[in-house]
């Protein structure tokens, strides 16, 4: 369990970083917190010829939050996002979700942007970004672009980022209107990848009737799955909506696989149960003004 040889680069500016990435092209891989990449290297499941370590790009170690949303720089650790009080005030879903991401020691090192750039379909933050319709900003030599989460994730462990591009930040927008959001999951052990996890956002109108319900899932398909469940509950009072129907609707839309930890049938069942639970809780939060 020792990695194959690679050339190590440690740029100190973003410009240098994208220049190196442009130069090495597809043979390069970005190292941020290393919590996913280093095990892959050690098991020789990945063997990039060039490793571009961005841990000196201190300008990217930021969490910026305002009424519109939370923007996280590429060097912000999960723990930085988790502990940021402003981010919590505008988007409490982030802290709630991050508490399910592995363990404190891993969150102290692993980066939020890194886990999104890694695009693991079991990664909670990828699902939250997709759920909220967030955006990803990528820099390349001589330019940058911002893409929607839906366009960014192109498959399991794959994104639209080109060789030579560095994801510099992601933005989680605050949902518009009177909303409440919840993350919940069932994992085999605390901090494990979920057997099934779901994040939901419920929007209420001024009469506290359900105007919208969306859910995103992890470990339920090859990439983050977002489903709109509004049709099952639209117009119902927040505390009397047919949440089990929404759960059944969700379960019918998902196509999970068997793996060594759970059968597909169990996963689908969990999706039904967890969706209904999360939506009920989110609606309560929305009604109570808790987001």
């Amino acid at each position: 369990m020792k990695p194959a040889g690679f050339t190590y680069h440690r740029p100190v500016t973003v410009d240098d970083a994208v220049a190196v990435l442009a130069e090495v092209g597809p043979a390069g891989k970005v190292l941020a917190g290393g919590q996913s990449l280093v095990p892959l290297l050690n098991m020789r499941l990945a063997a990039p010829e060039h490793l571009v370590d961005i841990n000196r790009l201190s300008g990217l170690a930021y969490v910026r939050a305002d009424g519109d949303g939370v923007t996280v720089g590429a060097l912000a650790r999960h723990a930085d996002v988790e502990r940021d009080e402003t981010a919590y005030a505008v988007l409490p879903l982030l802290r709630e979700t991050l508490r399910h991401v592995a363990h404190p020691t891993i969150r102290n090192r692993g980066t939020t942007v890194g886990s999104i750039a890694h695009a693991d379909p079991a990664g909670e933050l990828t699902a939250v970004l997709a759920l909220l319709g967030g955006t990803v900003t990528l820099r390349r030599a001589g330019g940058q672009r911002t893409v929607a989460a839906a366009d960014f994730f192109t498959g399991p462990m794959s994104t639209c980022a080109d060789a030579g591009e560095l994801v510099t930040s992601v933005t989680f927008p605050v949902p518009e209107g009177r909303t409440g959001a919840v993350w919940t999951e069932v994992a085999r052990r605390h901090g494990d990848y979920a057997v099934c996890g779901t994040g939901v956002v419920v929007t209420l109108d001024d009469d506290l009737r359900v105007a919208g319900a969306r859910a995103a899932y992890v470990s339920m398909g090859p990439e983050p799955v977002v489903v709109d469940l509004t049709e099952a509950v639209a117009g119902a009072m927040y505390d009397d909506a047919g949440w089990p129907a929404a759960g059944r609707l969700a379960a019918g839309l998902l196509e999970p696989d068997d793996d060594i930890h759970a059968t597909a049938a169990y996963r689908r069942h969990l999706a039904e149960v967890l969706t209904a639970r999360a939506l009920r809780e989110a609606a309560g939060r929305a009604a109570g003004g808790q987001r």
Partner: peptide, 28 residues
Amino acid sequence: LYERMVYDDAGQLLNASFMDFLMPYATE
């Protein structure tokens, strides 16, 4: 509640890591 060695029909051990072989943590 947690630990099993998952062999497939070909005799490959599918969970030969602490990520997939679920030794309980202190939390369990």
